[in-house]
Nucleic acid binder design. Structure first.
Length: 586
RNA sequence: GCCCUCGUAGCUCAGCAGGAUAGAGCAAUCGCCUCCUAAGCGAUAGGUCACAGGUUCGACUCCUGUCGAGGGCGCCA
């Protein structure tokens, strides 16, 4: 509908340009907006105020000339000039009436569009290190990323969902060593667990698997393991040096193959857990992209060579640095350490280079807000590689703070005392968790009220929307039980009978759905969809309370029944995009 | 110290990316079930949009500064 009005106004603008009223260079695409107040009609444009100055006239006069030049259309009931120079459009009733059968005919595809057709977007999200189970912080990124991906797909983009697996690097070595030390303890060795090791119960579980399946094949004397290792923090030493030495000892004592085995066991166990966890949360990927594969395929070296050949690298203090300050970063960054190992950043350069080489038109990274300092250096790298950094959009997701009983839930990764996504799912359910996560703008710090998410009451916005769906289903249940005939042909009903204000505002809300989906997708703002759904549900609940649908008058009944069927379809489509179920009964 | 995000009703948040009289939900008060699910609906009350400047026909929205909250500033990942 909006599109059609845009075309009408554009045609009027073209005529005025030809007539010399508006200088051609001043013409911009007219912006048509929904009015906030229904007294201003359905749509409005501020184009006359925007163009008044270049046209050397006043806004209201220009608005009048635009109206005179506007092609006639069956869509419009009336047009009027208002306020400082707005042009308000009121739609003809028939424009809305044809919407109901259109929605029912399109079904699940109502609201989808072809806007992004032919363009490929990659969305990378979560990508948590596989060193432990996902916690509630990752949950927000998971819900947000998956809904953004679904939204972009809904408006026609070819979307590729990806999880970057950090299966290389020091953190993974710390995990492997932690598992091995716990395993030694299961072999009745006595040792003091490193301050910087991973302490969660899941580490014990992996160690127990190793012990159960392989007995003492990986056992070493604990005293020998700790021989010559730098002191740990509690003993007045450096915890980093301590754990690094332990990793070294693990590699020496176990040898390459056995160390590798422990490493892989830890990695695969946790990755399986993450995959399973996300799956139950309604999050799936097209690809799990291994960091290690970047080294193995030579992509890391290739990226470094490209930077070196284009003169963006230099050596200092035994390390190789990337001059990211040339592209606005605060300081230069190391890509190869003095020990010859490439840094995580080097992998990330290669990964983003690879993303663009794979031919995506746009690449979206969803990161935790704590990584925001990382954005300039990645963009700098793309620019230095001669790629277009504007193809990369980094969306930062703020942390969620959990509240239970009005109290902040304390979390600490170190001690292993954090709330996992799995626990959250079990406590509040996947539907409520997803809805709550995307209810807020992603850059907004979020207070996640566990009690509210759990509560089966009118306070809970998830149930509010789902209840609208269940209520409609219930009406049809009633109709069947009472033997009330329900017409099955949407095009046969007389929608002119839907003259109640409640009906008109409900139909208007249904018409807004495609606009809500498009806006939410283009701005990567799922919360726009949750707000829309809440409003739609409100319109329905109000209507439900004011009027009965299963009435004697069969003509009016049929029209109303089609209207709430269309409403059910839109609620279902919207919830589906959010990855939230649409229950038939509650 | 430098950088990023945020600051709107008692609380949690929107505000259609510069537009018309700043809106919801919760909490508060008052109403509505012999009637398709009351997990619902209606009404009342609640605001110096943190503060101060600036940009223009117009600013909650853009710019600068101040104050406040959170986060980031490793040859960690």
């Amino acid at each position: 509908m909006k599109k059609q009005i845009e075309q009408l106004v554009a045609a009027a603008l073209q005529r005025l340009t030809q007539d010399g009223v508006i200088p051609p260079e001043a013409v911009v695409a007219p912006k048509i907006e929904r009015t906030r107040d229904s007294r201003h009609g359905d749509f409005a444009t501020n184009i006359a105020m925007v163009l008044a100055k270049p046209a050397r006239t006043n806004p209201r006069e220009l608005a009048q000339r635009l109206l005179d030049a506007l092609p006639s259309s069956a869509l419009l009931e009336s047009c009027a000039i208002a306020g400082p120079g707005f042009i308000n459009f009121s739609l003809a009733a028939s424009a809305y009436h044809s919407l109901i059968p259109a929605i029912l005919e399109q079904g699940p595809s109502y609201g989808r569009s072809e806007l992004g057709r032919g363009r490929r977007i990659q969305v990378e999200f979560v990508s948590a290190n596989p060193t432990g189970p996902l916690h509630v912080g990752h949950g927000r990124g998971a819900a947000y990323g998956s809904v953004v991906a679904d939204l972009l797909e809904a408006i026609g983009f070819d979307v590729h969902r990806e999880y970057y697996v950090n299966d290389a690097g020091r953190q993974m070595d710390i995990l492997a060593t932690s598992v091995w030390l716990r395993y030694l303890e299961l072999c009745d060795e006595t040792l003091s667990f490193p301050a910087n090791g991973y302490r969660g119960d899941y580490v014990w579980d992996i160690a127990a698997t190793l012990h159960r399946d392989h007995g003492e094949a990986y056992k070493q004397d604990a005293e020998a393991v700790f021989q010559g290792v730098a002191a740990d923090e509690p003993d007045g030493g450096d915890k980093e040096a301590h754990i690094d030495d332990l990793i070294l000892r693990a590699k020496q004592l176990l040898g390459d193959n056995r160390y590798r085995f422990v490493f892989e066991l830890g990695l695969n166990t946790i990755l399986d857990d993450i995959r399973d966890d996300l799956g139950l949360f309604g999050v799936t990927y097209d690809e799990w992209y291994s960091e290690r594969s970047l080294t193995e395929s030579g992509a890391v070296n290739r990226a470094i060579e490209r930077l070196r050949n284009s003169g963006h690298l230099y050596e200092k203090e035994g390390a190789v640095w990337f001059r990211s300050t040339d592209y606005g970063d605060e300081k230069d960054r190391v890509v190869i350490r003095d020990n010859g190992q490439t840094t995580y950043f080097a992998s990330d350069i290669a990964y983003h280079m690879d993303k663009l080489e794979r031919g995506f038109d746009r690449v979206i990274d969803v990161w935790g807000a704590d990584h925001h300092g990382y954005v300039p250096r990645v963009k700098a790298a793309l620019q230095a590689l001669g790629d277009d950094p504007s193809k990369l959009d980094v969306l930062l997701v703020q942390f969620a703070i959990l509240y239970r009983g009005g109290e902040k839930v304390q979390m600490s990764t170190r001690s292993g005392e954090f709330v996992t996504l799995r626990e959250l799912r079990k406590e509040v359910g996947a539907d409520a968790a997803r809805f709550f996560y995307v209810m807020r703008k992603c850059e907004q710090h979020m207070d996640f009220d566990l009690d509210l998410a759990k509560s089966q009451s009118n306070d809970n916005p998830v149930y509010y929307v789902q209840y609208a769906h269940a209520r409609i289903c219930s009406v049809f249940q009633q109709a069947a039980e009472q033997g009330i005939p329900v017409a099955s042909d949407p095009s046969a009903a007389d929608y002119g009978l839907l003259s109640e204000p409640h009906e008109q505002s409900l139909i208007t809300s249904l018409a807004k759905y495609p606009e809500a989906v498009e806006a939410a997708a283009l701005h990567e703002e799922p919360h726009q969809l949750t707000h829309y759904l809440r409003e739609l549900a409100n319109d329905f609940h109000t209507y439900y309370n004011a009027h009965k649908f299963l009435i004697e008058d069969s003509a009016l009944r049929n029209a109303r029944v089609q209207l709430i069927l269309a409403t059910r379809q839109v609620v279902r489509n919207g919830l589906n995009l959010l990855g939230v179920s649409a229950p038939e009964k509650m």
